[in-house]
Design a protein around this nucleic acid. Structure first.
Lengths: 257, 257
DNA sequence: TGCTGCTCGATTGTCGGACAGTAAGTCATT
DNA sequence: AATGACTTACTGTCCGACAATCGAGCAGCA
């Protein structure tokens, strides 16, 4: 496998591995030995090492001292954390973007375009999960990309990458197509109406609902990790600016082979 | 200088440098040459390098390809980003912590204790800025530490470190003592009353007000970076769940010597 | 004087090799 | 089946090296 060279070799390696993970080529929990990767990518161990640390900070990879790096696990708990984080940040980012856009129709055009792509991907007779996931990511990004808040933006991109993985590893999209479109529509509408309040709540609602869907979908599958059986039925809720209690569980870690 | 050895040498180096930065021993914009640090800390370049990357991800250090690492600058713009981020996250974290605590008085006890320490630090006849900053950090942490949300927590700790630097480099605290105490009191009260809503808004209000204070304080000092003079008077605002426009500016980067 | 281009020193990016220490896995023991 | 010694696979860390790049100072020129 050959690599591009954007800035430094390390970043190239990082994006390569990131893509492999997000794309699902590397399964959750899988080991990522430095030597192996270095050999595969024809670079040195140090470079790979650096890339892995970078990815660790974005949560895609988990590094345990003296044990090495793994593709991070996607527990229900982690999903809750990611979802609540997005529910907190994304509405605000969307609002900033909308307000920054002012009367410029560019934003709306982009969002609408992304929405159409998404709709097309979802309603095709044989929807490709990856394509759907890509379209979903692109849609969201189109909404908040122009927020003009670097920290927020990078944070959201990271969270999206995580979300995307969860979606892909829990075959969604086939049965949920209508839901998906239905959930995104209000966002596009709010952008068109240039109503920040409406947009915020539309985004928040969508993020939370999508998260809940994921969590209910994956909860039954989650292997029990603790002796005292964690209730497999999760009480959802306690989202940002929302209802009441919230799920608790132990963060997953890769099984020690 | 000798180092402890918590987990790995790299983390030791990272925390060492982090402390030096947060403590103000290393000025914003200062270069951090790998070789020099390696020599000082009696480790290898690789180890230092890794530590620097880690710090870069938390925003304390800025790495520019082929130019090296610098202590990151603290522009008004950055302050805005940090503040808005905290305004988004911290209230929610506080609420989670409060709800997790339930009827357990432990949380309130801790918060109250931290508040007392803070009050003592502020009202001493000759307040030590570092002590005040420490107390402030400790107070906030006591409020949200038990939120049970790892991602949120680590995020907040990072943001706190950044905030703390800004506070210390803009001599606050002497004249602002009363304000400081006044702002924190409602938070402690809300915890005592076990009122999540109240707590959320108290935290949000405080974070925003503190941020605004900082920004007005530093705005006049900020050197102009662009030809087209950025207005030195910043229109504050557009905070999470709040009013309208928000400041724009160019993120600072260290001057190329 | 002010601007342009070249040379040189300081550092980073990346490589390869090396070695001890540790986590896991295996296998023989009790 | 539980225990403990042995083996293997990696990681953590160090060293030395070299090309590429950045930035600064200097020389040349308009």
């Amino acid at each position: 496998m050959t690599l591009r060279r954007p800035e430094t070799l390390t970043t190239a390696v990082a994006t390569y591995i990131r893509d492999a993970i997000v794309q699902g080529d590397l399964a959750p929990g899988q080991r990522l030995p430095e030597v192996t990767l270095a050999a595969q990518l024809e670079t040195s161990r140090g470079t790979v090492r650096e890339a892995l640390r970078t990815l660790a900070d974005s949560g895609l990879v988990q590094v345990e001292p003296r044990r090495g790096a793994f593709v991070s696990q996607l527990s229900v708990r982690a999903t809750w954390e990611i979802t609540s984080m997005r529910a907190l940040l994304e509405p605000y980012a969307a609002r900033l973007a909308l307000e920054a856009a002012g009367s410029d129709p560019g934003l709306h055009a982009e969002v609408r375009a992304a929405f159409d792509v998404l709709k097309a991907a979802v309603t095709s007779e044989n929807p490709d999960p990856v394509a759907v996931a890509d379209a979903d990511v692109a849609f969201h990004r189109s909404v908040f990309a122009r927020c003009g808040h670097e920290m927020l933006l990078s944070q959201l991109e990271t969270l999206q990458a995580l979300s995307r993985r969860i979606v892909l590893t829990n075959q969604i999209s086939s049965a949920d197509a209508p839901t998906l479109v239905a959930q995104h529509a209000p966002i596009a509408d709010a952008v068109e109406l240039r109503d920040p309040e409406l947009l915020e709540s539309a985004v928040r609602t969508h993020v939370i609902e999508a998260g809940e869907l994921l969590m209910t979908r994956m909860a039954p599958l989650e292997p029990t990790r603790t002796k005292r059986a964690t209730p497999t039925t999760f009480s959802l809720g306690r989202w940002p600016s929302g209802a009441s209690p919230h799920p608790r569980g132990t963060a997953a870690r890769p099984a020690r082979r």
